[in-house]
Design a protein around this nucleic acid. Sequence first.
DNA 1: GCCAACGTTGGC
DNA 2: GCCAACGTTGGC
Length: 142
Amino acid sequence: MAYWLMKSEPEVYGWESLVSEKIGVWDGVRNYSARNNLRAMKKGDDAFFYHSNAGKLTGVVGVVRVVGEAEPDITFGPPPHPWVVVKVAPVVKFKRLVSLAEIRAEPRLQKMELMRYGRLSVQKVLMAEWRIIWAMGQQKTG
DNA sequence: GCCAACGTTGGC
DNA sequence: GCCAACGTTGGC
């Protein structure tokens, strides 16, 4: 069982879009590192859903589960080509946003790929990092 | 809207 | 294989 972080711009495809679809096809990835991560995803893996490019709302909004493993991304064109999609379903929305600013400010999260290689749209998350962000997301807002 | 960081492309 | 030019992502 592995943990991941998947980015999407909420204006393009946000948490609410996924909830209304129930199962989302994660398409459009055109970067080899991100593609390799998509290929490594297994059914039952969990991923943080991260809203990118969203000003103060940039950050982790909830958890999704991989329900379909890599298959060709037909939005690129007919295979063969290198690009793949996975299918994900919403699991739980956080009680509050865990913003990028907070992640930046948390010393235990400084080694996250998010800090080192911010532009990667599909990233691996370590279990320790997963637990920290999960706990932050369960805190009640004041 | 700007721009830093990074990936990709293509000439050589 | 190197590297300059260019394109894209995404934070701010």
